[in-house]
Amino acid sequence: MTHTDDVTQTDDMTIFQLGGDLPVRRVGYGAMRLADGPDDPRGPEARIWTAPADRAAAVKLLQTAAEAGVTLFDTADAYALGAGEDLLAEALRPYGDEVAVATKVGVVRPSPTEWVPLGHPAYLRQQAELSLRRLRTERIDLLYLHRIDENYPLAEQVGALRLLQEEGKVRHIGLSEVTVAQLEEAEAVAPVAAVQNLYNLADRGHEAVLDHTAGRGIAFVPFFPIAMGGHAGPDGPVAAVAREVGATPSQTALAWLLHRAPHVLPIPGTTSERHLRENLGALGVRLTPEQFARLDQS
């Protein structure tokens, strides 16, 4: 059997207090893939350039996620040129404060294939104002600096987000794709509630950041969390452990992240309700220390 049922338990292992005061389910939903049409490129070649071709289906999927217990939804102003934020606002309006929405500023999209960091403080503040309008809210739950722009001092970029926080327009501040040194520099300017970096079984380049955030109460939010690389083969460790615990390989990869540390909050994205429920089922997968070690050492 597979762990595909919705998990209703609310023990400490399934909930994280984001920023110390915002409880969220530890498997969230990354909404980047809710863009473009069925004939557009997928995977690493995805453009994330236009609103979803089937908007009604996208709204239904987001509402299904909320009904199934997802409380943290992740988007960015760069996803489909703001259409991603507008989509979440429409879909999640009925749930109000029951869900938290994270968005990002600091990347411009001159064309479907370009993602260019832009960290001018005035631009960051303007984009946050636009995000507030599109999300139809007076305060953004979690606002990330999408990428650090080397053309401006990091303190000024984080300072722009801190100003928004002081104005009551941002509840918590996050950073994306940063090193420990950059995180420490940012923390001297403003409290950081979350770091969103690439991290999964196949790519563990940010181990140091994960460990650093663990000691500071900062959420570590891995994107592309299900990627397994060479571990995904039918005779590999993921498949073997999945069989032992009665889960799917994807659930097992997510369970490894959840067991890695209690402040890890993966945000898998999908356009399939079946995969959505499968992902949430990872909250119910329990790994023994030996099983975790086998995955961790693979």
Rank of each mutant, 00 (worst) to 15 (best):
H3K: 04
D11L: 13
D12W: 15
F16E: 01
Q17H: 13
L18C: 09
G19K: 05
G20F: 14
R26C: 05
V27Y: 00
Y29C: 03
Y29P: 06
G30D: 06
D40C: 08
P41I: 04
R42M: 04
R42S: 11
G43F: 11
P44D: 01
P44N: 05
E45Y: 04
A46W: 09
R47P: 13
L62Y: 06
T64M: 12
E67R: 13
E67W: 12
V70P: 11
L72I: 02
A78Y: 01
Y79H: 07
L81S: 05
G84A: 08
L87I: 07
G96R: 06
V99R: 12
V99I: 07
V101P: 04
S111R: 11
P112V: 02
G119I: 04
R125E: 06
Q127D: 05
Q127T: 00
Q127M: 00
A128N: 01
L130I: 03
L130R: 04
S131F: 08
L132D: 07
R134E: 01
T137C: 09
D141H: 01
R147V: 01
N151A: 07
N151H: 05
L154T: 00
R162L: 07
G168Y: 13
V170C: 11
H172L: 14
L175T: 02
S176Q: 12
S176Y: 07
V178C: 15
V180W: 11
Q182C: 10
Q182V: 07
A186N: 10
E187A: 13
P191C: 11
V195Y: 06
N197T: 05
N200Q: 04
R204M: 06
A208D: 03
H212E: 09
A219M: 03
V221I: 07
F224V: 08
P225G: 02
G229Y: 06
H231Q: 12
A232D: 11
G233I: 06
V238T: 12
V238N: 13
A239I: 10
A240L: 10
V245T: 15
L257A: 03
L258V: 01
H259T: 04
R260D: 00
A261V: 05
A261N: 05
L265K: 02
T271M: 13
T271E: 14
T271W: 09
S272I: 14
E273Q: 12
R274E: 14
L283N: 02
G284C: 05
R286K: 14
T288V: 07
D296S: 15
